[in-house]
């Protein structure tokens, strides 16, 4: 009757497998200088937009960049993944590529899941349409947003750009911002073309409560406020989803 035991696959010794696991963690630390922390399941996906929003041209390495080719499928995955119920977008950006920034802003605004944006530090230039793209937007009391016209820089990379073209690009940003926030077109243009405020440029820097006063951002708040709002919106959405039977 011994043959039956021989046929059975060898059971791994639990102590042995635990030791192997430990060894692999040690190896990872030795080789990579880091180890992945145990992933805790969260129903919120946090997306950070930092530094320059990088577009079609890879920026030189002194720039800290947010790569839109990674962010866009990430938003698709977040929308599609049933475990994710809400998206928090944290911004601390100095601006970047117009096309990439507007693409991210359009993606955020067309998500069906609740989205809350939070501006920490700065949400400048192309960061402005991204900051207003969510269902609700927050700005930290000390955070700033710079609103200024698009400057001519096409010559640097040899692309001829006309004033009219830049005006059209500006119009796209203006339209998006006024559609997704409470700021009026007149007010936004006034902020954009104000002189005497910025040293190197025309435009305005709005700080925390000023952004709310102008209707650009919905409320002044921090991480706690943003997460509370997102969780409320997730909770509100659940009964509606249960009625229609559509969870996504």
């Amino acid at each position: 009757m011994n043959y039956m035991n021989e046929d059975q696959p060898q059971q791994p010794d639990p102590a042995e497998s635990e030791k192997k696991k430990q060894n692999s963690i040690v190896e990872t630390i030795q080789q990579l200088g880091q180890t992945t922390t145990p992933a805790s399941e969260s129903n919120i996906f946090c997306m950070t937009i930092i530094g320059q929003v990088e577009g079609h041209i890879v920026l030189p390495p002194q720039n800290k960049t947010t790569k839109y080719e990674h962010l866009i499928p990430q938003l698709v995955a977040a929308e599609q993944n049933p475990k994710i119920e809400g998206i928090l977008i944290v911004l601390n950006t100095v601006g970047g590529d117009v096309e990439a920034g507007l693409a991210i802003a359009e993606m955020i605004s067309s998500l069906s899941k609740p989205t809350v944006t939070l501006v920490l530090g700065g949400g400048h230039s192309i960061g402005v349409p991204i900051a207003v793209a969510g269902n609700m937007s927050f700005i930290a009391a000390t955070a700033t947003m710079t609103i200024h016209p698009i400057r001519l820089n096409g010559l640097v990379i040899g692309v001829p750009q006309t004033f009219e073209y830049l005006d059209k690009m500006q119009e796209r940003i203006l339209k998006f911002v006024t559609m997704h926030s409470n700021v009026t077109e007149e007010k936004f243009k006034e902020l954009m073309f104000k002189t005497g405020e910025l040293t190197r440029d025309i435009g305005t820097t709005v700080i925390g409560s000023d952004a709310v006063k102008y209707g650009l951002i919905d409320a002044v708040g921090g991480l706690g406020d943003a997460l509370r709002e997102l969780n409320n919106r997730i909770a509100e959405r659940k009964p509606a989803a249960a009625q229609t039977g559509v969870y996504n």
């Binding site: 041209i57 030189p60 002194q62 601006g95 117009v98 096309e99 230039s125 820089n153 830049l166």
Partner: peptide, 22 residues
């Protein structure tokens, strides 16, 4: 590509024509 940023463009684009790392 149109950059809309508060950073001075000379700082952002400095080294753009340099050799890319393989």
């Amino acid at each position: 590509m149109t950059l809309y940023t508060i950073m001075p463009l000379e700082n952002v684009l400095d080294g753009l024509n340099g050799e890319q790392e393989p």
